[in-house]
Amino acid sequence: MTARFLLAPATDTQITHLGRLWLYAFAALALVFLVAPTLLIIPMSFTGAGFLEFPPRSWSLRWYIAYLDSPEWRDATLVSLRAATLTMLLATPLGVAAAYGVLVVERRTARAIGAAISVPMMMPAVLIGIGLYLLYVPLGLNNTLAGLVLGHVALTLPYVTLLVLARMKSHDPRQELAAQSLGCTRLRAFLLVTLPQIRYAVIAAALLAFIFSFDEGVVSYFIATGTGATLPRRMFLSLQFGVDPTIAAISSLLMVLTILLVAAIQIIQSRGGPRRKA
């Protein structure tokens, strides 16, 4: 069975699986390189020792308790949760509206809008970070939730817009025309016909905006200090002073959150594709 698989052609040029074993091995190693380092943190975070080791010689929840007992970590977590929630709630409708606008205007205008919306994706985060910091100095917006959310909404808008736009493009525009001829205004046609069909992409975009904001560390490094510090900013400062096992606990929690959201997005996306007849 195995031998037959190995000798079966794997490509259009009749290379056998055996002839590509090196590729399989290489890809497996690459995937281990990508996934293993972060996953290893999870068991290590349960160590009972005062430092991290693998495998841990004793197990405890002491670093999770340390995290929850620390008012600084707790405050930073709350700031990040608030910012991520507000970013999601603002970026999603703005991104959906922008995607619809890009879809219905003439092509040259659409390209211009699309390019403008992609700008935050192309610009180095450090540059946006110092720019916002220097701009917020006279405006008094540094270390405020409003200032942070404004920055995060701008940073997440390209991702939200492009994700929703990609889904809208595979949606038959005649459906909205049909709805209008049947008695809908343009807005109602969108709400009653298009939105229910692209809802999974919209939810996925919202989750993406949430996690992006929650994990964002560069811009918030510059504009969210003191009591307004976000979780990633505190982690960054802590990392510069060495390997604090509390961060292992926080990282593990973040990993679990990320895995849940990625799984949710994957499930949502696989259910959300356009239904096509064979």
Partner: peptide, 15 residues
């Protein structure tokens, strides 16, 4: 606008 014209439309893609 279309919704005030009282017309039925059948599209090629059925829609």
């Amino acid at each position: 606008p279309p919704h005030k014209r009282n017309i039925g439309v059948v599209f090629q893609s059925y829609a």
